[in-house]
Protein backbone atom coordinates (compact mmCIF):
# COMPACT_ATOMS: atom_id res chain seq x y z
CA UNK A 1 0.00 0.00 0.00
CA UNK A 2 2.82 2.35 0.85
CA UNK A 3 4.46 1.43 -2.44
CA UNK A 4 1.26 2.43 -4.22
CA UNK A 5 1.09 5.74 -2.37
CA UNK A 6 4.71 6.51 -3.15
CA UNK A 7 4.23 5.62 -6.80
CA UNK A 8 1.18 7.86 -7.13
CA UNK A 9 2.99 10.76 -5.48
CA UNK A 10 6.06 10.16 -7.65
CA UNK A 11 3.91 10.16 -10.78
CA UNK A 12 2.19 13.36 -9.74
CA UNK A 13 5.48 15.17 -9.24
CA UNK A 14 7.15 13.88 -12.42
CA UNK A 15 6.82 15.84 -15.64
CA UNK A 16 3.32 15.64 -17.05
CA UNK A 17 1.94 14.44 -13.76
CA UNK A 18 -0.26 17.47 -13.40
CA UNK A 19 0.84 18.45 -9.93
CA UNK A 20 0.14 22.11 -9.36
CA UNK A 21 -2.56 22.36 -12.03
CA UNK A 22 -5.26 22.28 -9.37
CA UNK A 23 -3.43 24.91 -7.40
CA UNK A 24 -3.04 27.15 -10.45
CA UNK A 25 -6.73 26.71 -11.21
CA UNK A 26 -7.59 27.71 -7.65
CA UNK A 27 -5.49 30.86 -8.06
CA UNK A 28 -7.09 31.75 -11.40
CA UNK A 29 -10.63 31.29 -10.11
CA UNK A 30 -9.91 33.45 -7.09
CA UNK A 31 -8.39 36.16 -9.27
CA UNK A 32 -11.37 36.09 -11.62
CA UNK A 33 -13.87 36.68 -8.81
CA UNK A 34 -13.10 40.40 -8.24
CA UNK A 35 -13.28 40.88 -12.02
CA UNK A 36 -16.79 39.49 -12.01
CA UNK A 37 -18.23 41.00 -8.82
CA UNK A 38 -16.33 44.28 -8.71
CA UNK A 39 -13.41 45.50 -6.60
CA UNK A 40 -15.44 46.63 -3.58
CA UNK A 41 -13.48 45.36 -0.55
CA UNK A 42 -16.53 45.00 1.67
CA UNK A 43 -18.34 42.81 -0.87
CA UNK A 44 -15.24 40.72 -1.46
CA UNK A 45 -14.67 40.28 2.26
CA UNK A 46 -18.22 39.02 2.73
CA UNK A 47 -18.05 36.43 -0.03
CA UNK A 48 -14.39 35.46 0.49
CA UNK A 49 -14.94 32.29 2.59
CA UNK A 50 -17.55 30.98 0.15
CA UNK A 51 -15.45 31.80 -2.90
CA UNK A 52 -12.41 30.07 -1.42
CA UNK A 53 -14.44 26.98 -0.62
CA UNK A 54 -16.04 26.89 -4.04
CA UNK A 55 -12.69 27.44 -5.73
CA UNK A 56 -11.10 24.63 -3.75
CA UNK A 57 -14.02 22.34 -4.56
CA UNK A 58 -13.78 23.06 -8.29
CA UNK A 59 -10.02 22.60 -8.28
CA UNK A 60 -10.54 19.22 -6.61
CA UNK A 61 -13.22 18.26 -9.10
CA UNK A 62 -11.11 19.11 -12.12
CA UNK A 63 -8.32 16.75 -11.16
CA UNK A 64 -10.65 13.82 -10.47
CA UNK A 65 -10.88 12.45 -13.98
CA UNK A 66 -7.14 11.75 -13.96
CA UNK A 67 -7.42 9.89 -10.67
CA UNK A 68 -8.25 6.50 -12.15
CA UNK A 69 -8.45 7.18 -15.89
CA UNK A 70 -4.67 7.03 -16.41
CA UNK A 71 -4.38 3.69 -14.62
CA UNK A 72 -7.37 2.46 -16.59
CA UNK A 73 -5.90 3.43 -19.96
CA UNK A 74 -2.51 1.80 -19.47
CA UNK A 75 -3.98 -1.35 -17.94
CA UNK A 76 -2.52 -0.89 -14.45
CA UNK A 77 -5.98 -0.98 -12.92
CA UNK A 78 -6.56 -4.56 -14.13
CA UNK A 79 -3.24 -5.55 -12.64
CA UNK A 80 -3.96 -3.82 -9.33
CA UNK A 81 -7.29 -5.63 -9.17
CA UNK A 82 -5.51 -9.00 -9.46
CA UNK A 83 -2.86 -7.99 -6.90
CA UNK A 84 -3.00 -9.19 -3.29
CA UNK A 85 -4.15 -5.74 -2.11
CA UNK A 86 -7.85 -5.33 -1.39
CA UNK A 87 -9.39 -3.01 -3.96
CA UNK A 88 -10.94 -0.97 -1.15
CA UNK A 89 -7.45 -0.28 0.17
CA UNK A 90 -6.15 0.58 -3.29
CA UNK A 91 -8.88 3.18 -3.72
CA UNK A 92 -8.41 4.62 -0.24
CA UNK A 93 -4.70 5.03 -0.99
CA UNK A 94 -5.48 6.62 -4.35
CA UNK A 95 -7.80 9.06 -2.59
CA UNK A 96 -5.07 9.81 -0.07
CA UNK A 97 -2.57 10.46 -2.85
CA UNK A 98 -5.10 12.72 -4.56
CA UNK A 99 -5.60 14.63 -1.34
CA UNK A 100 -1.87 15.02 -0.75
CA UNK A 101 -1.23 16.30 -4.25
CA UNK A 102 -4.40 18.40 -4.67
CA UNK A 103 -6.27 18.95 -1.40
CA UNK A 104 -3.36 19.76 0.88
CA UNK A 105 -1.81 22.40 -1.42
CA UNK A 106 -5.24 24.02 -1.66
CA UNK A 107 -5.51 24.15 2.12
CA UNK A 108 -2.12 25.81 2.34
CA UNK A 109 -2.85 28.25 -0.47
CA UNK A 110 -6.27 29.32 0.82
CA UNK A 111 -5.03 31.85 3.43
CA UNK A 112 -2.75 33.47 0.85
CA UNK A 113 -5.61 33.83 -1.59
CA UNK A 114 -7.76 35.07 1.30
CA UNK A 115 -5.56 38.18 1.34
CA UNK A 116 -6.52 38.88 -2.28
CA UNK A 117 -10.19 38.67 -1.36
CA UNK A 118 -9.94 40.89 1.70
CA UNK A 119 -10.88 38.08 4.05
CA UNK A 120 -11.60 39.25 7.60
CA UNK A 121 -8.57 38.79 9.93
CA UNK A 122 -10.52 36.31 12.05
CA UNK A 123 -11.29 34.21 9.01
CA UNK A 124 -7.82 32.98 8.06
CA UNK A 125 -7.54 30.31 10.71
CA UNK A 126 -11.08 29.09 10.09
CA UNK A 127 -10.86 28.83 6.32
CA UNK A 128 -7.65 26.84 6.68
CA UNK A 129 -9.07 24.59 9.38
CA UNK A 130 -12.38 23.96 7.61
CA UNK A 131 -10.61 23.14 4.34
CA UNK A 132 -8.19 20.88 6.18
CA UNK A 133 -11.09 18.92 7.65
CA UNK A 134 -13.28 19.00 4.56
CA UNK A 135 -10.95 18.34 1.62
CA UNK A 136 -10.27 14.66 2.48
CA UNK A 137 -14.02 14.05 2.05
CA UNK A 138 -13.89 15.79 -1.33
CA UNK A 139 -11.08 13.48 -2.47
CA UNK A 140 -12.79 10.33 -1.20
CA UNK A 141 -16.20 11.16 -2.68
CA UNK A 142 -14.42 12.11 -5.88
CA UNK A 143 -12.71 8.73 -5.97
CA UNK A 144 -16.13 7.10 -5.87
CA UNK A 145 -17.21 9.31 -8.76
CA UNK A 146 -14.06 8.48 -10.69
CA UNK A 147 -14.64 4.76 -10.13
CA UNK A 148 -18.23 5.13 -11.39
CA UNK A 149 -17.24 6.78 -14.65
CA UNK A 150 -13.84 5.24 -15.29
CA UNK A 151 -14.56 3.36 -18.51
CA UNK A 152 -16.82 5.92 -20.10
CA UNK A 153 -16.31 8.18 -23.06
CA UNK A 154 -17.11 11.77 -22.08
CA UNK A 155 -16.63 10.58 -18.52
CA UNK A 156 -15.28 13.91 -17.31
CA UNK A 157 -18.46 15.93 -17.68
CA UNK A 158 -20.62 13.14 -16.29
CA UNK A 159 -18.22 12.83 -13.36
CA UNK A 160 -18.86 16.46 -12.41
CA UNK A 161 -22.60 15.99 -12.73
CA UNK A 162 -22.52 12.94 -10.45
CA UNK A 163 -20.07 14.22 -7.87
CA UNK A 164 -21.36 17.78 -7.38
CA UNK A 165 -24.61 16.80 -5.62
CA UNK A 166 -22.59 14.51 -3.34
CA UNK A 167 -20.41 17.49 -2.46
CA UNK A 168 -23.37 19.55 -1.23
CA UNK A 169 -23.24 18.65 2.50
CA UNK A 170 -19.46 19.03 2.70
CA UNK A 171 -19.59 22.39 0.93
CA UNK A 172 -22.42 23.67 3.11
CA UNK A 173 -20.84 22.76 6.43
CA UNK A 174 -17.31 23.71 5.36
CA UNK A 175 -18.21 27.09 3.93
CA UNK A 176 -20.57 27.71 6.84
CA UNK A 177 -17.79 27.10 9.35
CA UNK A 178 -15.44 29.44 7.48
CA UNK A 179 -18.14 32.08 7.09
CA UNK A 180 -19.14 32.00 10.75
CA UNK A 181 -15.52 32.08 11.81
CA UNK A 182 -14.81 35.10 9.61
CA UNK A 183 -17.81 36.90 11.10
CA UNK A 184 -16.70 36.06 14.61
CA UNK A 185 -19.49 33.59 15.45
CA UNK A 186 -19.20 30.15 17.01
CA UNK A 187 -18.03 27.51 14.53
CA UNK A 188 -18.10 24.32 16.61
CA UNK A 189 -21.33 22.84 15.24
CA UNK A 190 -20.42 23.34 11.61
CA UNK A 191 -16.88 22.03 12.12
CA UNK A 192 -18.11 18.97 14.02
CA UNK A 193 -20.68 18.20 11.33
CA UNK A 194 -17.99 18.63 8.69
CA UNK A 195 -15.64 16.32 10.58
CA UNK A 196 -18.47 13.81 10.95
CA UNK A 197 -19.12 13.80 7.21
CA UNK A 198 -15.42 13.41 6.47
CA UNK A 199 -15.04 10.56 8.96
CA UNK A 200 -18.15 8.76 7.67
CA UNK A 201 -17.06 9.26 4.08
CA UNK A 202 -13.56 7.91 4.72
CA UNK A 203 -15.02 4.88 6.49
CA UNK A 204 -17.71 3.93 3.98
CA UNK A 205 -16.85 5.30 0.55
CA UNK A 206 -13.87 3.00 -0.20
CA UNK A 207 -16.33 0.09 -0.15
CA UNK A 208 -18.78 1.82 -2.47
CA UNK A 209 -15.94 2.89 -4.76
CA UNK A 210 -14.46 -0.62 -4.87
CA UNK A 211 -17.90 -2.10 -5.61
CA UNK A 212 -18.45 0.14 -8.63
CA UNK A 213 -14.87 -0.28 -9.84
CA UNK A 214 -15.27 -4.08 -9.82
CA UNK A 215 -18.39 -3.67 -11.95
CA UNK A 216 -16.51 -1.41 -14.35
CA UNK A 217 -13.52 -3.76 -14.63
CA UNK A 218 -15.45 -6.84 -15.69
Amino acid sequence: MIALLLRDLQLAFRAGGGFGLGLAFFLIVTVMVPFSVGPNSATLGTIAPGVLWLGALLACLLSLDRLLALDWEDGSLDLLATAPLPLEGVLAVKALAHWMTTGLPLVLAAPVLGVLLNLAPDGFAWITLSLLIGTPALSMIGTFGAALTVGLRRGGLLLSLLVMPLYVPTLIFGAEAARRGAAGFATETALLMLAGITAGTLACMPFAAAAVLRVNLR
Binding site: L148, P165, L166, V168, P169, I172
Partner: peptide
Protein backbone atom coordinates in the same frame (compact mmCIF):
# COMPACT_ATOMS: atom_id res chain seq x y z
CA UNK B 1 -25.23 5.49 -7.03
CA UNK B 2 -28.84 5.46 -5.82
CA UNK B 3 -27.83 3.97 -2.45
CA UNK B 4 -24.94 6.38 -1.95
CA UNK B 5 -27.02 9.26 -3.29
CA UNK B 6 -29.80 8.54 -0.81
CA UNK B 7 -27.41 8.88 2.10
CA UNK B 8 -26.05 12.14 0.74
CA UNK B 9 -29.53 13.42 -0.08
CA UNK B 10 -30.55 12.99 3.56
CA UNK B 11 -27.31 14.64 4.67
CA UNK B 12 -27.97 17.52 2.29
CA UNK B 13 -31.43 17.96 3.74
CA UNK B 14 -29.98 18.42 7.22
CA UNK B 15 -27.13 20.56 5.94
CA UNK B 16 -29.57 22.86 4.16
CA UNK B 17 -31.70 23.18 7.27
CA UNK B 18 -28.62 24.14 9.24
Amino acid sequence: LCLVGSVFAVLSRYAVNF
